[in-house]
Each structure stands twice: as structure tokens, then as C-alpha cells.
């Protein structure tokens, strides 16, 4: 699904990502874990072509993001950490339709897709609401609905539970799991919470912009997590 080959990324003089070569398999649930500032979000933004490698390349469905940004954005959806900033339109149903409008779908098709997603996520009652009046959990759902409506093959969740209470955390994580199990959607979970690893089957551990582990969860040893300074 996604492959990075010797990926380097520089911001001004600082090298943020160094020689990253990983593969995200189709239908997998991959967690990218690392301490704050380890380069997790920077790496994830490459999958959606929001950032371009300084050296190396990122292939989404076999096509380089440098050659075709739109291909990457159609195939890989992105739910941002600050999901409050992700909502463009003031009304829920309009915001969900934003990506579909950009895909130049017809009115009927857009309406049908929006209604389907609202129903699927059980938020039909929020359709006409102003997004500024919603709770954090509801805003997170709207951000997810906006991405799901575009029917991507893979979704990146950047620390999706950071601003949520326990109940909303469980509900969002349950939803992410069901997207993977029920719909075989490729999930990339960016996290710094060890507990989140229980959902994943593939793990990538980052430390200071370098991948120190990338394999099946069963092969992960606690020494790797210690090295990544995820616990003492």
C-alpha cells in the first residue's frame, strides 16, 4: 500500500527523518510509535503528500508522491491531531461534503455519500449543526466522517485520542478497529501511548527521526521501547 525508500526530510538545517525505509501492507493496522519530537507526524504527512522527501521517495499504491500528489491524497485519508482545525465549513453536512466537492462528484452522489456516512457513524442528528457548538468527541467524529466520505483505502490517525475523555477514547478506538477488521481498511495509527499498541499488528518505532524497529508486533521487545524512551 505505502512504501518509503531511503526517505530523508530536512527542515531548515535540521534533519527530521533519516533514511527511512518501511512498508505499510494493505489491510494492515500499523502503529507508528515514538516519543514527542521523534518525527512521527512528519513521516505520516509524507504518506498524504503534504510533505515531500528531501531525498528518497514515498510510493502510494506503487506511484511516487512526487509524481502524483492527488493519487496519494485520494488513497490515503488523514485525520489530524488538531481535528478542530480540520473542519472547514461551519455546518456539519457541508463539511463532510467538502472533500467530495473537490473530487467533482455530482450533487446527488455527494448527498447520498454524506447521508450514508452520517448514518454509518450514527450522527444523522448532527447534520445541520454548527461545528462550533459540538463537543470534542463529536468534532472528532465529523473530522473522521469527512475523510471516510472520500472512501480512501488507508487512513492515518494522528494521535486521535489526545483531547478526548475515556468514553470517547474507547468509542473512537473501537471505530478505528472496526474500519480495519470489518472493511479491511489500512490503518496507520500515530501514537505515543504504549497502550494503543494492543490494536496494531505491525509496529514502527521511531527515535530521533530514525526507524529502530519495523516488524510484526509479536517480534517487538521491551528493550526497543526503552531505547525509544517510551518508558524508563
Amino acid at each position: 500500500m505505502i512504501k518509503t525508500k531511503n526517505l530523508y526530510f530536512k527542515y531548515e538545517e535540521d534533519i527530521i527523518l533519516k533514511n527511512i525505509s518501511i512498508e505499510i501492507k494493505e489491510g494492515s493496522f500499523t502503529a507508528i510509535i515514538g516519543a514527542n519530537g521523534s518525527g512521527k507526524t512528519t513521516l505520516a504527512k509524507h504518506f498524504n503528500a503534504l510533505l515531500m522527501p528531501a531525498k528518497g521517495e514515498v510510493l502510494v499504491g506503487g506511484t511516487s508522491t512526487k509524481k502524483d500528489e492527488l493519487n496519494a491524497r485520494k488513497k490515503v485519508g488523514f485525520v489530524f491531531q488538531n481535528f478542530e482545525d480540520q473542519l472547514v465549513y461551519p455546518v456539519v453536512e457541508e463539511d463532510i461534503a467538502f472533500g467530495l466537492e473537490n473530487m467533482e462528484l455530482g450533487n446527488e452522489e455527494i448527498k447520498k455519500s454524506v447521508d450514508e456516512i452520517l448514518k454509518e457513524l450514527n450522527i444523522t442528528h448532527l447534520a445541520k449543526r454548527n461545528v462550533n457548538t459540538l463537543s470534542m468527541g463529536q468534532k472528532q467524529l465529523i473530522a473522521l466522517a469527512g475523510v471516510l466520505a472520500m472512501k480512501p483505502k488507508c487512513i492515518v490517525f494522528d494521535e486521535p485520542t489526545t483531547n478526548l475523555d475515556e468514553k470517547n477514547k474507547k468509542s473512537i478506538m473501537g471505530m478505528i478497529r472496526s474500519l480495519n477488521k470489518k472493511y479491511r481498511m489500512t490503518i496507520i495509527l500515530i501514537t505515543n501511548v504504549l497502550n494503543d499498541l494492543r490494536y496494531a499488528d505491525e509496529i514502527v518505532v521511531l527515535k530521533n527521526g530514525i526507524v529502530i524497529f519495523s516488524d510484526k508486533k509479536s517480534k517487538l521487545e521491551s528493550s526497543v521501547l526503552k531505547e525509544a524512551r517510551l518508558y524508563d
Binding site: R73, Q86, V88, E104, M150
Partner: peptide
């Protein structure tokens, strides 16, 4: 800046 990223990731046209 976050909004701009989000709009691009949703194929702003």
C-alpha cells in the same frame, strides 16, 4: 497552517 494542510489532504480544488 493546520487548516491549510487539512484542505490539501482533502483535495482542495
Amino acid at each position: 497552517s493546520n487548516l491549510s494542510d487539512a484542505m490539501h489532504s482533502r483535495l482542495y480544488n
